[in-house]
Amino acid sequence: MENVKIEELYKQFSEKIIFENANATFESGKISFLMAPNGFGKTTLIKLLSGLQKEDSGRIKNLHIHQDSFTLYDDLSLYGNLSGYKNIEIFTKFKYSKEEIDEVAIRYLPSSRLKKKISIYSLGEGKKISLIIWELLTPKLSMMDEITNGLDYQALADLKKVLSEAKTDKIILLTGHDFSFYEDIIDNLYVLSDYKIIQEMKWKDYGVKGTYEKYFAPRN
């Protein structure tokens, strides 16, 4: 499977530069983690990689744009007036039977809840619907922004296991601030700093939290 590559990326909004001559390679078979405070371009980068935004200059080599990829944002875009089941069917293009959906969904939500409209779901329940869709689709490229928000302890434990198993021959790109969740499952860590994408090769020496403090702790 082809890696996703970023070459000499430049992106600016009005007067604010987000990326300048940024380079990175996200590898197949690895879980990659994007690290930065809010406002440093993590979500922008995911939107660039998914084709929702266009780079000003440079090149993004992603053969999976618009096909065989899945992006999960913290703000979900589900149909509130439809049931959990109906949302799953729509987003998976009606490829799966109810039995096949239930086989995956059982780890996240009971069948009785899936029959209810999304509008009454909590944030965590809505995110679980998106995770059910993701598991059913088994995309080659997965990008997840703040995936842990709203999930309970058991859902987080299950998600760790599923992500670790899913990375084989796939590219998984994660971003978030729940560092303890990501510590055990990520392979590569990338820091967004000074308009660049820096692969921190020694992140395991510092840990995820320590790496964040290395780059972003206040300087006296």
Rank of each mutant, 00 (worst) to 15 (best):
130 S>I: 09
132 I>Y: 01
120 I>D: 06
105 A>E: 07
46 I>H: 03
53 Q>V: 10
93 K>G: 05
77 S>C: 09
54 K>F: 11
153 Y>S: 04
129 I>Y: 03
122 S>H: 11
66 H>C: 09
145 D>P: 06
96 Y>N: 02
83 S>F: 00
122 S>D: 06
48 L>A: 06
50 S>M: 08
155 A>R: 07
105 A>K: 07
104 V>F: 03
123 L>N: 12
68 D>K: 13
132 I>V: 11
93 K>H: 14
115 K>V: 11
120 I>R: 11
76 L>E: 06
140 K>C: 07
84 G>R: 00
166 A>E: 03
92 T>Y: 06
152 D>L: 06
141 L>M: 11
71 T>G: 01
137 L>C: 11
77 S>V: 12
130 S>N: 14
119 S>Y: 08
100 E>L: 07
105 A>S: 14
123 L>G: 01
68 D>R: 12
107 R>P: 00
109 L>W: 09
122 S>E: 07
176 G>F: 06
91 F>A: 04
156 L>F: 01
53 Q>F: 13
81 N>H: 14
117 K>L: 07
46 I>S: 05
124 G>S: 07
149 N>A: 10
135 E>Y: 09
83 S>E: 04
167 K>L: 10
102 D>A: 07
132 I>C: 04
79 Y>M: 14
169 D>C: 01
176 G>V: 09
126 G>N: 06
150 G>T: 09
81 N>L: 12
54 K>W: 08
142 S>V: 08
153 Y>E: 08
136 L>A: 03
92 T>M: 02
128 K>E: 01
99 E>A: 12
115 K>G: 07
131 L>G: 00
115 K>H: 12
118 I>H: 03
127 K>I: 07
146 E>Y: 13
155 A>M: 04
117 K>R: 14
78 L>A: 05
145 D>L: 13
150 G>D: 01
82 L>S: 04
142 S>M: 12
70 F>L: 15
150 G>P: 02
125 E>N: 03
158 D>E: 10
129 I>V: 15
135 E>K: 15
156 L>S: 01
117 K>A: 08
131 L>Q: 04
96 Y>C: 04
87 N>G: 10
133 I>G: 03
147 I>Q: 02
86 K>R: 15
170 K>T: 12
114 L>C: 08
67 Q>K: 14
49 L>H: 03
157 A>N: 12
97 S>V: 10
110 P>Q: 05
58 G>R: 06
113 R>H: 05
73 Y>W: 11
47 K>L: 08
46 I>W: 06
80 G>D: 15
149 N>F: 11
127 K>W: 06
125 E>L: 03
139 P>K: 11
72 L>N: 09
151 L>N: 01
174 L>A: 10
158 D>P: 00
68 D>Q: 14
90 I>N: 08
106 I>A: 03
167 K>Y: 11
99 E>G: 02
166 A>W: 10
58 G>S: 04
65 I>F: 09
113 R>K: 14
100 E>H: 12
168 T>E: 15
151 L>I: 07
